[in-house]
Amino acid sequence: MENARPHIVAHDLTMAYGDFLIQKDLDFTINRGDIFIIMGGSGCGKSTLLKVMIGLKPPAQGDISYDGKMYWSSSLAEQDAAKRKFGTLFQSGALWSSMTLAENIGLALRQYTDLGPAEIREVAAYKLMLVGLAGFEDYYPNEISGGMKKRAGLARAMALDPEILFFDEPSAGLDPISAKLLDDLILELCESLGTTVVIVTHELASIFAIGNNSVFLDPVTKTQLATGNPAELRDHHPNFEVRNFLQRGKAKEEAA
């Protein structure tokens, strides 16, 4: 990638629940505009890493920096300021069930901007248009399908035009066509807006379709085995585990 600017950097990150080590010594760099994939087998700590990155769970050691500014060692006010630039799409949408879709999107705008109610509604309507849900402003989350919830969650994540979008398994629970459409939507939005994207997934189709950078977490050695472009890792990485995962368990031991 030409003139890449580092946006998010992990410094010797170690994560643990109490004494139980999840991952240690994570070091990776995410450049501005990257679509970064966090991948690895089930239970390797992908979602935990995401939680550390979005400020929900403090790391046991190390830190994450955004634009060169350490997150976990900064003050609470600074952490809040950093969080404002994040948008997160949770695994099943996590839409607030007592609010309509327009209110779900509007909450962040009400909290952080001086916009009036009419303008907030207008912005919410536009965000819903972007994700293909025009006209669904006044629906409650339990009135729409799972795929629509995901898209509404995406609209909510983008409410404040975030610099970084985090996705936790965006295609989980969607049919292949819907998953593909969601991938395309993420790609299109991020290219138009220049957003940096971090995705937790183990869907190989998504990984190669949209990812241009990645980290591979291993549950056995409890550390990262590889980082870089997923397609290159699949074809050329010296570690067998990495190639095997990316080739759906069809890698040959000796090839490198």
């Binding site: 536009y126 248009m129 972007l130 293909g132 849900l133 025009a134 939507l185 299109e188 939005l189 290219e191 138009s192 807006l193 220049g194």
Partner: peptide
């Protein structure tokens, strides 16, 4: 970027 976003908004 704006052109693509407008197109996306009217895509569906």
């Amino acid at each position: 970027g704006a052109r693509r976003l407008v197109a996306l908004a009217f895509a569906v």
